[in-house]
Amino acid sequence: MIVLNLRCGNGHDFEGWFASSAAFDAQLANALVGCPHCASTDIQRLPSAPYVRTSHAAPSSKAPARTGDAAALAQAKLRQLAQQAEDVGKAFPTEVRRIHHGEAPERSIRGHASLDDVAELLDEGIGVLPVPPAKEDLH
């Protein structure tokens, strides 16, 4: 496991944990590395002496865990993907069912659904994923 210092095109610095340098390169090439602050995938590796984890034991206090960074990165990537989807608003439950049953063209959509709607969709075998709004969207 290696820890790399990274910077996005918007100037945000952050760390990324990867299985190897080759794993980082592959993820970067497929736009799978994103800034946890702004979701930008314009990422560059900064010069550093990377920390290399040599055992399967938990990281020592010298290399603190970055689970918050990973969660923030995942949320940022989900929000980025959601922004690229077609917004169908409150028609989401109906439209996702239509897509699932082949009555509408398959495409990425986003919209609004109640917790009951989401539970019903999941019970019907329709995969949906709630994406929390960004903090700045809550104001």
Rank of each mutant, 00 (worst) to 15 (best):
H56L: 08
F92M: 04
E86W: 03
Q75D: 09
R53C: 13
A39C: 07
A104H: 04
V128Q: 00
V128M: 01
G11L: 00
V52Q: 14
R45M: 13
E103N: 01
E136M: 05
V52F: 11
R45P: 14
A63S: 12
L46K: 12
G11F: 00
C38N: 09
A134L: 08
V118S: 04
D87C: 01
S108A: 15
G9D: 05
P93T: 10
G102C: 07
P93A: 11
A19Q: 11
L32T: 07
V88S: 02
Y51G: 12
A76H: 10
E15M: 07
A31F: 10
A23L: 09
I2Y: 08
R98N: 12
A113D: 02
A71R: 07
S61K: 15
E86Q: 13
D42Y: 03
G34W: 05
A91D: 01
W17G: 13
S40V: 03
N5S: 10
C35I: 00
E136S: 10
R53M: 15
R107Q: 08
S60P: 15
T54R: 14
K135S: 09
I43S: 07
R97K: 13
A57P: 14
D116C: 04
P105C: 00
A76Q: 13
G16C: 00
V118W: 03
S55A: 14
I109H: 05
A113S: 02
G68V: 06
T41W: 05
V52S: 13
N30V: 05
V96Y: 02
S21D: 15
Q83H: 09
E136P: 00
P50I: 02
A70V: 13
S108N: 13
G89L: 06
A104L: 05
K77G: 15
S21T: 10
K62T: 15
Q75G: 05
L129K: 11
V3P: 13
L6E: 02
Q80S: 14
S55T: 15
C35E: 00
A65S: 09
A65L: 06
A76N: 09
N30I: 03
Y51R: 15
C38P: 12
E103K: 09
V96A: 02
G9Q: 04
Q27R: 13
